[in-house]
Design a protein around this nucleic acid. Structure first.
Lengths: 135, 135
DNA sequence: GTCCGTGCAAAGGATTTGCATAATC
DNA sequence: GATTATGCAAATCCTTTGCACGGAC
């Protein structure tokens, strides 16, 4: 389980790190801001410092355990990196994030970067709008 | 020319607004942070307050004159909205921004949002990596 | 026991805002 | 001349950092 995730990337197993992993892998939403995580833990009386949340998330990102997103908001959003790349629909009303994956789009991107000699390391495609529930 | 752009969107013609428009439409780079604009103007002895730059850019964005981008950086980048939508390659080394447009990708996005009943208002596709010159 | 992690509070950078002055129409 | 825009400095928001203490191995 999660302890191995930490060991695998060479991070010591500590209570804050485990708790943050738990929140990130909790069912339901998969996309959290640092503040979201802080509230989740505070709600169940598992207090933690915001500074630690940021530090841990940054380490997790460096270790490839989480992916950081800069959607249109002023803050970052984090999700567990589960290996399979995907893109996002972001509802501007309820802030919900819906994932999708389109192989044709991926192919076109690869073709494009090869054509212009650009060494792509990463990409993000985000579609903003109003989700079905909010309409 | 630019005076009409301002009148067309119902904004008074003021010196700061004209100067910012000039920078945004200057040849060369087309993508500027607020700080970039501040420096450009300062360099040619056209002093301006940073607060005004932010205020004007926000008004321009609301009026559809400029587009604001949140690339992976901690700050926003602005470009003149010239009507034809495009996406971006961002060089992580030199920060250069290269534009591209792919109709197939656009189509796939439309098909997707229609399929899941999502009312898209906007989207951004950004590919990060190293441009040819920096390799 | 050593070393790394955490909490706290203060610092940091980008952006916004309140208010008095200055400019546009 | 009335109204809106600007400059300045202070405020705000998210995030990072310094330092002393506490916890993992």
């Amino acid at each position: 389980m999660e302890k191995n995730d930490l060991k695998a990337v060479g991070l010591k197993i500590t209570t804050p790190r485990m708790r943050i992993l738990e929140v990130l892998s909790s069912s339901g939403d998969r996309h959290f801001s640092a503040e979201d995580i802080y509230q989740h833990l505070r709600d169940i009386d598992k207090d933690i410092s915001v500074a630690t949340i940021y530090r841990v998330l940054t380490q997790f990102e460096a270790a490839g355990l989480v992916i950081r997103h800069n959607f249109s908001e002023a803050y970052s959003v984090f999700e567990l990196n589960q290996g399979c790349h995907h893109d996002h629909l972001v509802c501007l009303q309820c802030r919900r994030v819906i994932e999708f994956h389109d192989p044709v789009i991926e192919e076109r991107q690869d073709a494009l970067t090869q054509r212009v000699g650009f060494k792509a390391t990463d990409h993000s495609l985000t579609i903003y709008g109003i989700c079905q529930d909010c309409q």
